[in-house]
């Protein structure tokens, strides 16, 4: 729920509809790239540091 005092009167539904036809493609792209790089970085450490350091237990 939104307190009426918090709502910005300039942003109306038609304004949103007019500007947001492409959203959230940008968020998918940016967050997707960030998470993909994260997985790649994790895999690099896993494959090239962790596994070569040998078994323990």
């Amino acid at each position: 729920m939104n307190n009426p005092a918090d709502t910005d009167p300039d942003i109306t539904d038609p304004t949103l509809a007019a500007h947001l036809d492409e959203a959230p493609s940008g968020a998918f792209a940016l967050a997707g790239i960030a998470v993909a790089l994260l997985l790649v970085a994790w895999a690099i450490i896993y494959l090239f540091v962790f596994l070569p350091r040998g078994p323990v237990g």
């Binding site: 942003i11 304004t15 949103l16 500007h19 947001l20 492409e22 959203a23 959230p24 940008g26 968020a27 998918f28 940016l30 967050a31 960030a34 998470v35």
Partner: peptide, 14 residues
């Protein structure tokens, strides 16, 4: 990460 990025995207597009 996604929801906040998408929120900022609404701001940038507006």
């Amino acid at each position: 990460v996604f929801t906040v990025t998408a929120s900022m995207e609404t701001a940038g597009r507006l």
